[in-house]
Design a protein around this nucleic acid. Structure first.
Lengths: 165, 165
DNA sequence: GCCAGATCATCCGAATCCAGACGATCCGAA
DNA sequence: TTCGGATCGTCTGGATTCGGATGATCTGGC
C-alpha cells in the first residue's frame, strides 16, 4: 500500500528531509507517522509471506475471534470491500484464513483465522511490538497511554458525532 | 487515495464499529486516525477543486516557499515520484502551481505555488484547522503539544536512526 | 575537452484499485 | 405464499499506481 517507492529511500546517502519536514500539523504528522511505521513493519510482514499492511491488518482484526461479515471486516480495517476479496483470496490460499458459512444467512461468509494463521500473526505481532517499542523508546508509560487514547479518540470521533441525535 | 469506499459509510444507520474497533496498537491507531482525518478533510478539499489528500499535501509542502526538486518534493509528501507527476500536471492545469526551471541545473524542475494556489491553500487551511480543532476538542494545550511532538518523533525516527554512525 | 557513471523528469506496460452491475439470498408487506 | 426492495459477496471495465526503461543533463576523472 506504499505511497512512495521505498527503494528510493535505501540509497547510501540517507534522506534527511523526509516526511514531516514541513510545517507540522496534525493530519500531516498522522500520515507521516503511519507511513513510517508501515515501512518498518512491511519488511517483517513480507519476510513471513504477507504482502503488505492490509494482510496483517486483516489478520489482526480476525485474531480477536469476533464473527464478522466480509463487509463488516472491510469497514473495520478500512479496506474497500472489493479489495478485501483479493486479500482474503490470497490469505485463504496460504491457509491463514477460511471463509465459513453462516448457517443463519446463506449470503454471508464469515472469514476466520486458522491455526496456522494465528501462528503467523503471533510471529508478526512480536516483530510489530518490537518496532513500536523502538518507536516509543524513551517515552514514559503515561505519555504512551495518552498518545494511544488521543489517537483512538481521533479515530472514533466522527463515528460518535455522526450518530443521529 | 481513499482505502475504502466512503459512500458505504454515509448510509442512514451509521457504523458504530469503524476503524480502530479491534485491539488497539500504535500502528493500527495511526492508520485509523489518519484515515479519519483524511475523510473529513477530503470534503473540504474537493469543494475547492482539489482531488484528494495528495493535492493539498503538495500545496502544503510548496507553501513554505522552499525550493525543492520534484524528487525531493515526492519524498517530503510521501508520494511516489511518478504519481507526483500527475498531481503536478493537474495542479499546474489549475494554475495553482508552476514548474520553474533551475538555472543551475537544466534537468530539474522546481515546482512553485502560484498566488492563486496560495489563496486556495489558505482557504483549505482554515477548513483543515477547524477540523483538527474539532478533533482535539477538550484536549488541553500541553497534551496537544505532546501528541504532535510524539508524532513528529515517530515520523522522523528512522531518518535519524539510519544516518550512518 | 571528453567520456563514463550518476541523477532528474518523464514515459510505458503490467499490476492494482475501485465504482457499478449482477446473481443469490433475506426480509417485510400484502 | 408471493412479491418488491434491501443486502451480501463477487465480477468486470475503466482509471490509477508503480517498477523499470529512456532521454537529457550534470559531475568527476582523465
Amino acid at each position: 500500500m506504499g505511497t512512495f517507492r521505498r527503494d528510493d529511500a535505501v540509497g547510501e546517502e540517507v534522506e534527511l528531509a523526509l516526511c514531516g519536514a514541513f510545517p507540522a500539523d496534525l493530519t500531516v504528522l498522522l500520515h507521516a507517522a503511519a507511513e513510517r511505521m508501515t515501512v518498518e513493519l512491511d519488511v517483517a510482514a513480507v519476510a513471513m509471506g504477507l504482502k503488505d499492511v492490509r494482510d496483517w491488518l486483516v489478520l489482526a482484526a480476525l485474531d480477536d475471534g469476533r464473527q464478522r461479515t466480509q463487509l463488516e471486516l472491510s469497514r473495520v480495517v478500512c479496506v474497500d470491500k472489493t479489495t478485501l476479496i483479493s486479500v482474503l483470496d490470497r490469505l485463504e490460499k496460504q491457509d491463514l484464513v477460511v471463509r465459513t458459512a453462516d448457517p443463519s444467512d446463506r449470503r454471508v461468509r464469515i472469514p476466520q483465522i486458522t491455526d496456522t494463521g494465528r501462528d503467523v500473526y503471533a510471529t508478526f505481532a512480536t516483530a510489530r511490538d518490537a518496532a513500536e517499542a523502538a518507536a516509543l523508546q524513551g517515552v514514559d508509560q503515561a505519555e504512551r497511554e495518552l498518545l494511544l487514547s488521543l489517537l483512538a479518540r481521533i479515530a472514533d470521533r466522527q463515528a460518535a458525532a455522526l450518530v443521529p441525535s
